[in-house]
């Protein structure tokens, strides 16, 4: 029903955007089906109290997701386009910069995989350095120093100052 028609569906980039827009209903449909399948595996009788069991709500939400996916697909096919979010530092005149995103995602993933192995002081520094590099910072020496200052500083702040556990890892005994 309501849709903001920002892109012209007739123009080539507009049409390409239109096709990628269908990813959302596909994603919703997939999630909806997964919820329905998961719900069907639940036992109704188990320790049940009251007329509504554990299945009812997941069934309702799963079905609603499938319906919403169809509704959204119809909206997209009729020319409806999602409004990309704007912002102070956002320039929507060009498409998503996938290289930057890839490196950022990689930095986050490396931190996730390494944090308990090498500790936050190292993995956090890699995360910050990698992200800053991906976003175009090229002052390597300054960035390395800053990354370690931040990760070691935040480790001290959280572990000693705030009494919150962050893995120390490789630098155990040094910090």
């Amino acid at each position: 029903m309501t849709s903001s028609r920002t892109a012209d569906p007739a123009s080539a980039p507009g049409r390409r955007q239109g096709l990628s827009e269908l990813l959302v209903p596909v994603l919703l449909l997939g999630i909806g089906l997964a919820v329905l399948v998961d719900a069907s595996g639940l036992e109704e009788g188990l320790g049940r109290s009251g007329p509504v069991g554990p299945k009812a709500i997941p069934y309702a939400i799963g079905a609603a997701l499938v319906a919403a996916a169809l509704w959204l697909a119809v909206d997209v096919l009729r020319g409806g386009r999602g409004e990309q979010e704007s912002g102070e530092d956002v320039d929507l005149s060009h498409g998503s910069d996938w290289r930057t995103l890839g490196v950022l995602f990689g930095a986050l993933l490396v931190n996730t995989l390494l944090i308990e192995r090498v500790g936050w002081p190292v993995s956090g520094a890699v995360l910050f350095f990698g992200s800053a590099y991906a976003l175009g910072s090229r002052r390597v020496v300054r960035d390395v120093v800053l990354s370690f200052a931040l990760s070691i500083g935040s480790w001290y702040l959280f572990v000693l100052g705030l009494d919150i556990e962050l893995p120390v890892g490789l630098l155990n005994g040094i910090l």
Partner: peptide, 25 residues
């Protein structure tokens, strides 16, 4: 601007809220 998109977003949140142990059974 778009109700259908708001609705989709709500449903995604509800699914995330479903994850975990069912409170009664």
């Amino acid at each position: 601007a778009s109700r259908v998109r708001g609705f989709c977003s709500l449903l995604l949140g509800l699914v995330i809220g479903l994850v975990g142990i069912d409170q009664t059974t």
